[in-house]
Design a binder for these strands. Structure first.
Lengths: 348, 348
DNA sequence: TTGAAAGCGCTAACAA
DNA sequence: TTGTTAGCGCTTTCAA
């Protein structure tokens, strides 16, 4: 017995993990009422006399009872939670987006489960399916992959889904995007208006939809100006600093260096700004996505409103959950050119 | 009938929300096997002939079956999810922290549910209790309030809890902190070493633990230098830009303005840097928390590693969940002074 | 106003 | 190897 006391409760794996929490049944027994009466009190349903209610509440307090929502979900069929799969919560673009989604969810009484895909299609799929297994009521996905047919059975089974920032691959679904094409076109046109012709484009990996759209915007602006684009002015690839640094340095060297850069997202911009800061000759730059303190560094950007994107997507999702039943919609949010200095520099 | 077709399925609130998804029972019927055999296949348990398994998998595929984890959770007692309650996911400090927690959770097969308290104690409490009702296996809390006795029944019932960034109020619990006191002391001492004596401190609201600790560090450094602190050099309050701006301007005006500022967190620093940038006379500044692009702006900071804080807390949590049973521990992570220029300016 | 019984979809225990 | 039964904690239904 002494021995047993020293190893108080050898935990068996098949024991429920959350201690032995009191259940409604326990509360009912203690309060001397029926199970359903406890349920009524816990859920603030009508039809309980004040006196009965008091007894039940006393028992709840005494036992430290808290309703088990897992059981409730199983019975009711709704989890009052939604899932958000994005690329990386540590990226300053996604934090505000996630927070905006959370606020909308909260207004609808739902919790938000976040997951980072790390830009890996397989991980995106795992996350999405894990969320489906937990029966989230709805799903907001920033796609990493480009084939979402794996979601078809889930969507058919009633999981409302909204794709954000990039369209879904090979299925038809609600989508909320920023106007990457238009934004990039405007940003590059801005550089052209300030006299630039040799303009470099450094973007994210080609398979990412927004990277392609922004490149398309670049080409459109160049075409509008009647400027032929040299292959060496375009570089797509990872946003890893080393890669970006090499691309910037290559474009700025040689006999005919670019006189301006358009950078395809916040991470590329940050590295490009660092590299440019090391050089004596100033180089014009416009970046896609805003960055904290960019105003103090005079960085001209094409800004997209991450919070608005998240809010729009979430509102759309809850409209679906409330029964909206039209065909899949595609919403495109405008971007905004914010001139701060770097985009208004003349060619060297 | 035509009428009914136009309003396909008037949804009743007591109908399960997720359509009529197939269950293991349906799969079993279709495959012509028992329920438990389906369960075995779904959970990759041994003891199923390849042929039987194939039939089950075919049925799963055909029906679009996906295990309902709510039911599983109810039976098994563990949810394989943890909760993280923080202040605001949109804050650049918390994004990386959350991501780090997510990675550790993922390594342990758990999902992460995030919630933002918006620095509101009541909202923190609601969120925490909602997570408990969902029976998260563990909880990481960045406290907004300073009384966490409401968590006692939950913790007794087995919800492992780790407090982060600030200690729990009025209960004894695991805690992971950054060394706010030491970091601030070092930062202020750095300014003193560069010749400053009249140093201003602008911090967050006094009720926030880290704000108090950093102020204490400031006072300690000043005392070490034998410098008396004038009341007008210290300002605690909201991080709202207007408030911070007013504080900075007040400290820099008058006959004996401060010659240096120590700012108590990232948001205060950002505003202070903006205000200082507008003035001609340079003022020395050291800020608590690092900021993106601070290197380019030559902002000297006392940096805390948000990802390391999150990772440490999560690892601690999972150690508890795996049965670690020592008394509540308090871990304090070091900060790092990063000189970049603004903290090395001499007094005007 | 109150409560007993059934069952949500799954896993554990046990039997065949 | 396979299947049957019970039951996780709650809500729904229906009866008292």
């Amino acid at each position: 017995m002494a021995e047993a006391a020293r190893h108080p409760e050898p935990r068996h794996d098949n024991e429920p993990r959350y201690g032995n929490r009191p259940t409604m049944k326990d509360v009912a027994a203690r309060a001397g009422v029926g199970l359903k009466t406890v349920s009524r009190v816990v859920n603030s349903e009508s039809g309980v006399t004040p006196d009965t209610e008091r007894r039940v509440r006393t028992a709840i307090e005494a036992l430290g009872f808290r309703r088990n929502d897992s059981a409730r979900v199983l019975r009711k069929g709704r989890t009052a939670s939604i899932g958000l799969v994005l690329e990386d919560l540590a990226d300053p673009f996604y934090g505000p987006l996630s927070r905006a989604v959370e606020e909308v969810a909260r207004a609808h009484g739902a919790l938000l489960i976040n997951g980072s895909s790390a830009e890996d299609p397989e991980r995106e799929r795992e996350l999405v399916l894990a969320l489906c297994a937990r029966r989230v009521d709805g799903l907001i996905v920033i796609p990493a992959g480009n084939d979402h047919r794996y979601l078809e059975p889930e969507m058919k089974a009633g999981v409302a889904t909204v794709f954000v920032d990039r369209p879904a691959g090979r299925i038809d679904a609600d989508t909320v995007l920023s106007d990457s094409f238009g934004g990039a076109r405007e940003g590059v046109a801005h550089l052209i208006a300030h006299g630039h012709r040799r303009i470099g484009f450094i973007g994210d990996q080609a398979r990412i939809h927004t990277a392609g759209e922004r490149l398309r915007g670049y080409h459109a602006a160049m075409a509008d100006a009647g400027t032929a684009v040299d292959d060496s002015w375009v570089s797509l690839g990872s946003t890893e600093p080393g890669r970006v640094r090499a691309a910037v340095e290559r474009m700025l060297s040689g006999p005919e260096p670019v006189t301006a850069l358009f950078t395809g997202n916040n991470r590329v911009t940050v590295t490009a700004v660092r590299v440019l800061a090391e050089r004596e000759r100033p180089t014009a730059l416009v970046g896609f996505d805003d960055i904290e303190l960019a105003d103090l560094l005079s960085i001209t950007v094409v800004s997209q409103d991450a919070a608005a994107v998240g809010r729009t997507a979430a509102e759309h999702l809850f409209r679906r959950l409330d029964g909206a039943d039209h065909s899949p919609a595609r919403v495109e949010l405008p971007t905004r050119l914010v001139p701060r200095g770097s985009g208004e520099l003349p060619p060297a």
